[in-house]
Nucleic acid binder design. Structure first.
Lengths: 338, 338
DNA sequence: CCTCCTATGTTAAACGATTACACGTAAACG
DNA sequence: CGTTTACGTGTAATCGTTTAACATAGGAGG
């Protein structure tokens, strides 16, 4: 493997000049430039990443930290798209992207931090983190070492730190409003744990939406379960329907599957008898008849924008911003009164 | 940021001794060891990754290259699980994982290779690659620079190179056999492009399965489409059914959705009239009634094993192996004759 | 007492880049 | 003609490790 020294010797120039040609950091005569270029081509020289990193203290590498979700979960589509967005941007501007996860369950922050090599060795230029309600210590740890960081998907309260997230509360309010406009008055909610950032906000938006419409919050129309499973959705639907719900906002894919199965089994017509609005990771809702109206986020954009922000922070220390994305409601057939 | 020099000064020992304590590369007296440990704790010293890398020429970093699939695709669940498996293993043994993609479409290998920073800068210890039928140049490029590499999901013909992949052909044969045993004689196939490794093998296995059962291959019972969409599946199903198929092997999730919708719309009973066996990324097939019998791969295992192999190759130059995983058929209700 | 070994340390040379500082020449300016 | 100014280039220090080679001291064996 050729080194810069070898190029210098071949061309009869100094190491410094070669370096400047490579990085464009100083004016070099066209003649010398051509000389260097030729030598590089001949030798197949590539600058040594480690050496450059040692000198410049920059690795051009960014790490993305995400919670370690269960295998085969649709949530993974979401994270994969976030990852894709970040990766595409970073690849474009010549940065590397390292991926690491922390376990959602493991309560011991200490243990986790020790295991995250990427946090231990201090050589990452910046972090993209999908935080977790229980584990904000990771975020704080990164901030303490004053590493640049951008939070994805979820803002952490009390932490003034750049982030890009969905306005989940607003969109949930909108969902309720849509159902209200269609004449529904017993609007139920089915969703996951309130311990998670997203779960909590979806529920909160639902609640706020109700009061904005002048409806009152009724426990009997709300089904919260720790796990997102179709079976959970099924059971929750059963209870809500027994309590005369005429609309359901299901705040995640998997539970929606259960809800739909229940309604189909009981021959409850959608949307005539009950309106349903879901939350989607993938357009698989097209399987259902009628096609399900859903809230749609833009994970790819989120990743891309987050990476862009981080990149900008690396150039300009003072830059900081909070970007709010607004999910959209994809109007299909399951919410309209006929 | 403290350096090893500072630790040496604090403890009154030499840099070398400190280094040996840190790496356990030589016997050091317990007293000195304790001294160093204390100093490290006090100063919060972390070895400089770049410096170490420059000396040792190892980065403890592995890159995973995958094709750049469309957003929101269920294929992403598959890749995400592969990624997870690799990441979990690598995280465990103290390696970093970099992720990069190459575009499936872009024909110009040259352009792509130039864009892959991770290939350009030669500092990655090894590569995990999900290859592509059209773009084997990437794999060759890595091999030419004699970098360790493990192929995932797909073996590349004519390339003696360690890999871990699914025995797709065998499982496809088994699927046909299962349907045959249930008394089906007009077994159809619906799947994606034959240009892709996996698409081709699934189809090939189907064909081999037929002849093993003494059935003959009939174009009228085969629907191949470039894109995996539900609409495609729907159309293909229509044609197969018109040609009196009594069983369908659908070799991907998305098209299966279309197939099921078609059958439901036409009131064709599954499995009484037509048996269906699918190929699954996620157990979402539980939405369907009856629950769909599917082929199930183990992407997480694939990633984990691949990473393990690569890790071993880094320790032992001579190690090389091909690992074949066998997907399983998850027997549910859509294939049985009643 | 000499030699040799073991156990522990130290010295100093890499590794391959970046970059502050300095130098020489020639043209431009007053 | 002396002094700037501009341009192109070179010298050498530095980043923070690893590690081969060398040093030293104490004890065992003869």
């Amino acid at each position: 493997m050729a080194s810069i020294k070898e190029i210098a010797e071949r061309t009869g120039l100094s190491i410094a000049t070669v370096s400047h040609v490579i990085n464009g950091t100083r004016k070099v005569s066209d003649k010398s430039k051509a000389l260097v270029m030729d030598a590089i081509k001949e030798t197949g020289y590539k600058p040594n990443y480690a050496a450059r990193m040692l000198r410049t203290r920059r690795s051009d590498t960014v790490a993305m930290l995400i919670p370690n979700v269960r295998q085969g979960m649709p949530t993974n589509i979401f994270f994969m798209d976030v990852l894709s967005g970040a990766k595409d941007y970073l690849q474009l501007v010549g940065f590397n992207l390292i991926i690491a996860t922390y376990s959602e369950e493991d309560e011991s922050d200490e243990g986790d931090l020790r295991n995250l090599k990427v946090l231990r060795d201090q050589w990452i230029d910046g972090f993209l983190v999908v935080p977790n309600k229980k584990k904000t210590a990771i975020v704080k740890n990164i901030l303490d070492n004053n590493n640049p960081i951008v939070l994805l998907d979820r803002a952490v309260k009390d932490l003034a730190c750049p982030c890009v997230y969905n306005d989940t509360i607003k969109i949930s309010r909108d969902v309720v409003d849509v159902l209200y406009q269609e004449g529904r008055r017993r609007i139920g909610y089915i969703g996951g744990s309130l311990e998670s950032f997203t779960g909590f906000d979806r529920w909160k938006g639902y609640k706020e939406g109700l009061s904005a419409c002048g409806l009152k919050y009724d426990e009997a129309l709300v089904g919260i379960s720790e796990l997102h499973t179709a079976a959970n959705g099924y059971e929750a639907a059963e209870r809500l329907i027994e309590n005369q719900a005429d609309a359901v906002y299901v705040s995640n894919d998997v539970q929606a599957i259960g809800v739909l199965r229940y309604l189909k089994e009981k021959n409850i017509r959608v949307p005539k008898d009950v309106a349903v609005i879901g939350f989607e990771n993938y357009e698989w809702m097209e399987i259902c008849s009628p096609r399900l109206t859903t809230v749609c986020q833009e994970p790819y954009e989120m990743g891309r924008i987050g990476a862009q922000m981080l990149h900008r922070m690396l150039e300009d220390e003072t830059y900081s911003e909070k970007v709010v994305l607004t999910p959209k409601i994809i109007f299909r057939d399951s919410h309209r009164r006929e």
